[in-house]
Nucleic acid binder design. Structure first.
Length: 420
RNA sequence: GUGGGCGUAGUUCAACGGUUAGAGCACUGGACUGUGGCUCCAGUUGUUGGGGGUUCGAGUCCCCUCGCCCACCCCA
């Protein structure tokens, strides 16, 4: 608002109380659930050589073409703030020869990503993802495990009713043929397509399938469906995955029109969406990427992963769940210089036990200290004044019901420990 | 990159082109000299985002600019 001072950059936000407590609880839940599935944390750098992203995400995707924060470092190297988490993890996996460990190797990460886009509801230039990657298993069971883990996380955090959509976009054997049949299908309808789709027709015809323009919806009726054009292996893989999802009781729908924005996906892709978000309604998304490790110079290694959009999860949770703000166990009001010294010592002993105590200002009135205790929502107020110090004890008051009592100074720590 | 909406106190918002830009909440103090919340009283808070223009006079109208929000594109 004030224009002369510094502000956070466009699309970047300070995450602070009270929201930070929601963030922390989401992260805690992710670690808990992912650990139960055998995933371990990995923390790659936030900046990578630019090639890590251009080669994996795809040269003519929007991310690479116009959304990356790319700079030159002082040595003239092109470096990029990571726009997504999978490529750095794959780079790490290959660089550290993790393919020599017994498969599958399972990792998760959490942290900021950067994309230079126009911000809008649910979309930021610095945003946070929690992601998971599983290397070394080609089986549909691995895909199912990822989706199951995602569901446990979401319902564990308080979002049990989100929509799961799955699709299979085939592999390098069947996708080219499918693309060809799409191109053939749209060839005679090209005039009915919107300007964007006419461009997509040449670049990435799959994208025409999820265009929202009415004319394009109409034009694609009767278009060939990926799921009808899968090769035998891909078809079996997908059907097995669907069977497992059924058995696991994960409500899902197959959406043959779902397309992902990154080039590296093979076979399974999936997306979890919410109707309570805005236009950017994907809460989490992911899929299988069986060729990426090899492209990074490792051995052929199948893999599957997903990423969760933190601010979207937090947004939904703030609307759905009531969070209790952390509150101090006790507030120590002090009156006069002597009490001011004694009080600091008492509080120090209590805090040593890990209990939250706030100290009042010994120079201000008891009334204002009480008011501060109330605003902090402290459970107990302890009062240290001349009378109390002479008697070697403190008065206490419980703010919820105004109950009062006395406790020996020597016994304050025990007293508070018994309360917490 | 394109389109739309909005910028007034810490915050939520008022103010027909016309006096010194107001109110609720919040904050500080008091009524209650050592007991919070409720009530009452008093007090503090502004480059009306910034710059230019029109006008006797601009928070209000016009232009530029910056920022925020929403949508497209795309995505988590």
């Amino acid at each position: 608002m004030s224009s002369g001072r510094y502000q956070a950059l466009k699309g970047m936000k300070d995450i602070m109380p009270p929201d930070i407590h929601v963030w922390q609880s989401v992260e805690r839940k992710a670690r808990e659930v992912f650990s139960a599935f055998g995933f371990r944390e990995i923390r790659p750098p936030i900046v990578e050589a630019t090639g890590v992203f251009t080669r994996s995400i795809g040269e003519n995707t929007d991310i690479v073409e116009k959304e990356m924060y790319t700079f030159e470092d002082k040595g003239g190297r092109s470096i990029t703030l990571r726009p997504e988490g999978t490529a750095p993890v794959v780079r790490c996996y290959v660089e550290n020869h993790l393919y020599n460990m017994p498969p599958p190797q399972k990792f998760y990460y959490a942290g900021p990503m950067f994309r230079y886009e126009r911000p809008q509801s649910g979309r930021f230039r610095q945003f946070y993802q929690i992601g998971a990657e599983c290397f070394g298993s080609p089986h549909p069971a691995a895909d199912a495990e990822m989706l199951s883990m995602l569901r446990h996380f979401l319902s564990g955090v308080g979002l049990p009713n989100l929509k799961f959509q799955v699709n299979s976009i085939g592999c390098e054997n069947c996708r080219p043929a499918f693309k060809d049949s799409l191109v053939a299908f749209f060839a005679e309808k090209i005039d009915d397509l919107c300007a964007d789709c006419r461009r997509r027709y040449g670049q990435n015809p799959l994208r025409i399938l999820d265009c929202k323009v009415e004319g394009c919806r109409e034009a694609r009726k009767g278009a060939p469906r990926v799921t009808d054009h899968l090769c035998e292996d891909c078809r079996v893989h997908f059907e097995h995955l669907l069977l497992l999802l059924e058995k696991l009781g994960i409500p899902h729908s197959v959406n043959p029109e779902m397309v992902r924005g990154l080039d590296y996906y093979t076979r399974t892709t999936f997306e979890v969406t919410s109707e309570n978000l805005g236009a950017q309604n994907a809460v989490a998304a992911g899929g299988r990427y069986d060729r990426l490790v090899k492209e990074f110079g490792g051995p052929e290694t199948p893999a599957v992963g997903f990423a969760i959009g933190m601010e979207r999860v937090v947004e939904l949770l703030k609307a759905a769940v009531q969070y209790d703000l952390p509150r101090p166990l006790a507030f120590l009001a002090m009156l006069g210089k002597q009490a001011g010294i004694e009080g600091v010592l008492i509080a120090d002993r209590v805090r040593e036990k890990g209990l939250w105590v706030e100290l009042g200002d010994a120079g201000s009135s008891l009334k204002s200290q009480m008011r501060r205790a109330d605003r902090l929502n402290a459970q107990y107020v302890f009062i240290a004044g001349d009378d109390e110090l002479r008697a070697g004890s403190l008065k206490w008051k419980r703010l919820s019901d105004s109950a009062e009592g006395e406790v020996a100074i020597q016994g304050v720590v025990d007293f508070l420990q018994s309360l917490s």
